[in-house]
Amino acid sequence: MKYVVETKNLTKSFGKEQAVQSLDMKIAKGEIYGFLGPNGAGKTTTIRMLLGLMKPTSGSIQVFQQDLKKSRISILSKVGSLVENPSYYPHLTARENLEAWRKILGAPKSRITDVLAIVRLSDVANKKVKGFSLGMKQRLGIAAALLNNPELLILDEPTNGLDPSGIIEIRELIKQLPQSHGMTVLISSHLLSEIDQLATTVGVLTKGKLIFQDSIEAMRKLAKQNISLRVSDQDEAHRLLLAKGIQTDYQKDRLILSEFTDEEIANAIQFLVQKQIAIYRVEEEKRSLEDIFLQMTREDQVG
């Protein structure tokens, strides 16, 4: 499989502290790769290395199957990026800011008007960025990242500082980029809900280590299911099941069966029915991805 981004054993240390440890990141073409991790996990450091802003302590980075160290400039001409807080020149207008970057990228001038329209800043194009709100500056940063119609778009916490409608807008925009422009997107966030709604693949980083990297479906599968039962006689049911060797979690108005296969659940229910206990509800309780994420990062801390 050909990857757009592939890092091997990527490590970055600051003094004794290892910010990123032997990272093997793989991003296939057309994916939206959600790069997830708590604050300070090393996401931004990784992204900075992918953009050649920082030199790795060891390991290699391949982007578009080219070595980043050797062909940095030709790679970056096909990459758009927004790193951390948006950078801009406050004394220039939005249009002038984009013009400063466009000139270096060599994109056509008309592209400025296009990207301003995409992020809905056309009305304030000729106003100085100094007076912009954080959300507007963030949009300007996204506009700048789109200037060269990149093949790989790298967005570090792109919805920071945006209001809810802005978040939805940007999410819709990012979602359609792979289909409409054939872009591959790397988007980092510390909010799982955000990645959950966008990403096709997820990488979870904690304390500089990649502890999970797979499709979002695979991550959802990790959401082990609980089955909750509401029955006519809860005490009796609990006792009967226990006698048969089935552990249940006794709660106020229901019994919880966790980590059972479909067959085991069927057997348990059939058994209860035979014992004349009426079944009112059999419900599946999915654990949220948020829980899985927390569990993953916690497990790593313990281990």
Binding site: L51, L76, V83, W101, L105
Partner: peptide, 14 residues
């Protein structure tokens, strides 16, 4: 002022 170095150096320039 706004740490624009990272924006500038992430462009295809040496």
């Amino acid at each position: 002022e706004t740490n624009a170095w990272k924006q500038l150096i992430a462009l295809p320039v040496s």
